[in-house]
Design a protein around this nucleic acid. Structure first.
Lengths: 221, 221
DNA sequence: GCAATAGTGTCTCTCAGACACTATGGT
DNA sequence: ACCATAGTGTCTGAGAGACACTATTGC
């Protein structure tokens, strides 16, 4: 009986210019050597305590990034998705603020808009679409977008982040009511935006105790 | 390098006496031979077009059941969950009306309440808990519970199904408003419950075109 | 008629969105 | 002073829950 090829892939997503982008790397080996694809690799049973650790290892080794948010997306499988044979890929998606990618610069990471046509090897296009759908869906009723907004952000910035993900403008009063009621942010004392020709905005951060935990709301943003 | 063991497991859920129950089978081989566990088995790359087909095959062969709803839950992995070695299990959860299990009777299927303490081998307890959490969460804003209610059901029966899953009583008027607005059911012409000492209730079924597709609602039931 | 459950009409209270206002920086 | 954006107070309309009512069966 033919063996099953076991891999992990990571959909690393970020926001740049209010557009959702996915991180792609040139493959360093066959198949599809030199082609842009999702970061991925084999599971190493001797190194990885579970598939999530394999995903973190792949991301660290190939991009130098430690993502603030990483969640299992789904597992993709079949005889044809990888030319090497019947394969299983456990896929994770990660969210990082854009500046983290810029600062990492470990290898050449390309950012491609997820809304434009995109030719990817394997079934990576399907995987990206699944990840984007999951992110957009969860953004409606959770604190997920905060992980794209960075360490510190203003409420108007966070609102633009939510709007970019949900694809529609939000009511300012309602948005702030929701964020307040979620009780997940704390103002950074004395920290305001500056340098612009208008009133400065208060900077906020995720409450430390909620840093690794999604906050959910009943009725959506 | 040690190989990765690739399996699928299925969490088959049903409602009996307003309690959510999971189907367990006595294992027919080592490890844990004779112990009650989730139906599962190895992926057969030569037979299965993808892991979902492996899950369907396992379910068909071991229980004789073709579930009306089957969805990927998550993938569980690690060196210790299976005594045979580093393993990956792609887990699916299935929903079936209770009478389908009774009619199948292919092998001895035990139904255990998911809310009572339950000793299971491998990490099956964690898997069951994850499946139940997913089902209860999705029930709040989708037509998922319909798959537990059977082919035909009355609105009061469907409401009791939702209540059993959500663990709280629902307002009858609001519930019916929501179901109407979801526009997923059609009355079975001339079909009513009978034999009880009160007004008969109209029987409904899922609209055929929505049979294999979840209906979602914005603001929850 | 009576008990029991199915099914509906309507009122009220809550909450989300709209609007308008104030606040505070730069120029 | 004026512009631009941050941040807040308040009104209104839509929708969810509560209640009460009618409908239809068996006994």
């Amino acid at each position: 009986m033919q063996p099953v090829i076991c891999t992990v892939d990571v959909v690393l997503l970020t926001l740049q210019d209010d557009a959702l982008r996915v991180a792609l790397l040139k493959r360093d080996r066959e198949p599809f050597k030199g082609v842009l694809a999702l970061p991925g690799g084999f599971i190493h049973p001797d190194d990885d305590a579970q598939t999530q650790d394999a995903a973190l290892r792949v991301l660290r080794n190939k991009t130098g990034i430690e993502p603030p948010y990483l969640e299992q997306l789904a597992t993709f499988s079949g005889p044809a998705r990888d030319p090497r044979g019947w394969s299983v890929s456990v896929v994770y998606y990660a969210l990082v603020p854009h500046d983290v990618i810029e600062r990492a610069g470990h290898q050449e990471v390309r950012l491609a808009s997820v809304d434009k046509p995109l030719n990817l090897p394997f079934d990576h296009r399907t995987i990206v679409d699944t990840a984007v759908a999951r992110l957009r869906s969860k953004s409606q009723y959770s604190s997920l977008p905060c992980y794209l907004a960075g360490e510190a952000f203003t409420l108007p910035q966070l609102q633009r982040t939510y709007e970019a993900l949900m694809g529609e403008p939000l009511n300012k009063v309602s948005f702030r009511r929701k964020i307040t009621e979620m009780d997940m942010l704390e103002p950074i004392q004395g920290a305001f935006t500056a340098g612009s020709a208008h009133r400065p905005a208060q900077l906020y951060r995720l409450k430390p105790e909620l840093r690794d935990q999604l906050t959910l709301i009943e009725r959506g943003i």
